[in-house]
Design a protein around this nucleic acid. Structure first.
Lengths: 122, 122
DNA sequence: CTGTATCCGCCGCGATACTG
DNA sequence: CAGTATCGCGGCGGATACAG
């Protein structure tokens, strides 16, 4: 190997990078995690909105549509009035929650390291 | 608890969400991971650029500056000509690589699930 | 309650050119 | 080789209004 060459590259189509890109759509992982923590693995729109302070209605809907297209979640509409809609994890979705849970647990047990970063503007 | 209320929320300042936001600056985690896989935990600018296909010089410099401010990496300049600059992980940076490694390993052992998502536009 | 449709400002990020 | 400065487009995402 030539001096200065990389040990290994992050090719643009490699798995790890695709996973990272999933996280870059900032709400996706949070939605997956909320669904996973609900008994039965499903939740209505309003619950999701309340579980994710700061998300706008538009972003919520849009992200849910994208996730549905990616087959990470299922959407079920009840013909009631007022209307009710329930979202649930697909088998694929359940797999993708795994690394999110890992990340979540890491963050909870490393609150101190996180606090150190708060001072980055000092 | 009232019906329909969230099991738990992702408050805007909670640890897990801050970690997620770290990943949202898409290059940060890759840079950390590249540094971690290098013997000695340090690399020069050119190596980083070659390890991250698709990154522009501007984004690389910018991200490195942000990471330095966040105390995730150290920057060391050699007064040689042509100039050489070496980046290395701080202790804090080494902690933050942990969850990235978890994610990376998960992705490598779940290539099949990732492939299923390729068909999301079908 | 859930969802759609516009309008629009902000800024992320690439392209390019230039310095030491 | 490493870094800075500037321009400019595209689109992310909020605000608002409306509908079933």
């Amino acid at each position: 190997m030539q001096p200065g060459s990389p040990d290994h590259e992050w090719r643009e189509d490699c798995g790890p990078r695709r996973v990272l890109e999933l996280f870059s759509s900032k709400w996706t992982s949070m939605i997956l995690h909320v669904l996973e923590t609900r008994l039965g693995g499903c939740a209505r729109t309003g619950v999701l909105q309340r579980s994710l302070p700061g998300i706008s209605k538009k972003m919520l809907t849009q992200t849910l549509r994208d996730m549905e297209a990616a087959r990470l979640i299922d959407r079920r509409v009840f013909g009631t009035v007022p209307p009710a809609v329930e979202y649930s994890l697909t088998p694929l979705g359940r797999r993708f929650v795994e690394p999110i849970t890992l990340l979540y647990d890491w963050a909870r047990t490393n609150a101190d390291a996180l606090d150190e970063m708060v001072g980055k503007s000092r």
